[in-house]
Amino acid sequence: MTERQRRVWDRSAPRYDRQIALLERTWFAGGREWLGSRARGRVLEVAVGTGLQLPYYRDDVTVTGVDLSPEMLAVARGRAGEGVTLREGDAERLPFGDEEFDTVVCALGLCTIPDPVAAIGEMRRVLVPGGRLLLLDHVVSTWPPVRACQWLLERLTVPMAGEHFTRRQLPLVRQAGFDLEEAERLKAGTVERVAARKAVLGSGP
């Protein structure tokens, strides 16, 4: 599955920014600013892709971006300024030690990661106690007619690109033992922003 996902995103890399541009301006509007304003300290961005999130981070953070696709990373390097490190890696087996980062960000990535439970577990592992998890993604709608359309769309997108529209990450974040700080659903409930903290020892799971 990992190799298949890598091939899919390697092929998509040259045209990805053009394909998602309209959705970035409409469906996900404001989401990247929301993530960037909340990221602090040593930031790990999982599934950094072509680096669309990179311009939105504050100047006083250091950013490490990890992605499965070398071709997506090649595009991201064109956006990476000082304080940004990019490396190849699998979200389900992050190539970092325990408690290395103050913030973990994942923007529009968990919808395509084959095992989101494993990925969120890895995000928790690499966060310091009290570290912040920030997520932006498209999720299953709160409106039944939209949910039905999402289910139908998945009949194409899951086999072709492993992209899911009927997932929701918030229950997995809670299941992983994070303390929820903020959660916001937009666009008929199809877009969700989540901010949560890794519990400090003795204060939670």
Score class of each variant (00 low, 15 high):
residue 107 A to N: 14
residue 107 A to H: 03
residue 107 A to Q: 11
residue 108 L to T: 00
residue 108 L to I: 01
residue 110 L to K: 04
residue 110 L to C: 06
residue 110 L to N: 03
residue 111 C to F: 08
residue 111 C to G: 13
residue 111 C to N: 07
residue 112 T to Y: 01
residue 115 D to M: 04
residue 115 D to K: 10
residue 116 P to T: 01
residue 117 V to S: 12
residue 117 V to P: 01
residue 120 I to D: 07
residue 120 I to P: 15
residue 121 G to A: 09
residue 121 G to T: 10
residue 121 G to W: 04
residue 122 E to A: 06
residue 122 E to V: 05
residue 122 E to K: 04
residue 124 R to G: 14
residue 124 R to N: 09
residue 126 V to D: 08
residue 126 V to I: 09
residue 127 L to N: 12
residue 128 V to I: 11
residue 129 P to Y: 02
residue 130 G to I: 00
residue 130 G to C: 02
residue 131 G to W: 00
residue 131 G to V: 02
residue 132 R to W: 02
residue 134 L to H: 11
residue 134 L to V: 09
residue 134 L to F: 11
residue 135 L to V: 15
residue 135 L to Q: 07
residue 138 H to I: 09
residue 139 V to K: 01
residue 139 V to Y: 05
residue 140 V to F: 02
residue 141 S to M: 10
residue 141 S to H: 04
residue 142 T to R: 13
residue 143 W to I: 14
residue 143 W to E: 13
residue 144 P to W: 09
residue 144 P to S: 08
residue 145 P to T: 04
residue 146 V to M: 08
residue 147 R to D: 00
residue 149 C to D: 00
residue 151 W to I: 09
residue 152 L to V: 15
residue 152 L to M: 14
residue 152 L to D: 01
residue 153 L to P: 00
residue 155 R to C: 00
residue 156 L to E: 03
residue 156 L to F: 14
residue 156 L to D: 01
residue 157 T to I: 07
residue 157 T to V: 04
residue 157 T to F: 06
residue 158 V to G: 03
residue 159 P to Q: 11
residue 161 A to N: 06
residue 162 G to F: 08
residue 162 G to N: 08
residue 163 E to H: 13
residue 163 E to C: 15
residue 164 H to L: 06
residue 164 H to Q: 12
residue 165 F to A: 15
residue 166 T to E: 10
residue 167 R to W: 04
residue 167 R to C: 02
residue 168 R to P: 08
residue 168 R to T: 14
residue 168 R to L: 05
residue 169 Q to W: 04
residue 169 Q to L: 12
residue 169 Q to R: 01
residue 169 Q to H: 10
residue 170 L to E: 14
residue 171 P to A: 09
residue 171 P to N: 06
residue 172 L to P: 03
residue 172 L to T: 07
residue 173 V to R: 12
residue 174 R to V: 12
residue 175 Q to R: 15
residue 175 Q to E: 15
residue 176 A to T: 03
residue 176 A to S: 13
residue 177 G to L: 13
residue 177 G to E: 06
residue 177 G to S: 08
residue 178 F to I: 05
residue 178 F to H: 10
residue 179 D to P: 00
residue 180 L to H: 09
residue 181 E to I: 12
residue 181 E to P: 02
residue 181 E to Y: 03
residue 182 E to G: 03
residue 182 E to M: 06
residue 184 E to D: 13
residue 185 R to Q: 13
residue 185 R to C: 11
residue 187 K to I: 02
residue 187 K to M: 14
residue 187 K to Q: 15
residue 188 A to N: 06
residue 189 G to R: 07
residue 189 G to L: 09
residue 189 G to V: 10
residue 190 T to L: 04
residue 190 T to N: 10
residue 191 V to T: 11
residue 191 V to G: 03
residue 192 E to P: 05
residue 192 E to K: 03
residue 193 R to F: 06
residue 193 R to S: 01
residue 193 R to Q: 13
residue 195 A to T: 02
residue 195 A to I: 09
residue 196 A to E: 10
residue 196 A to F: 07
residue 197 R to M: 02
residue 197 R to K: 15
residue 197 R to W: 03
residue 197 R to S: 11
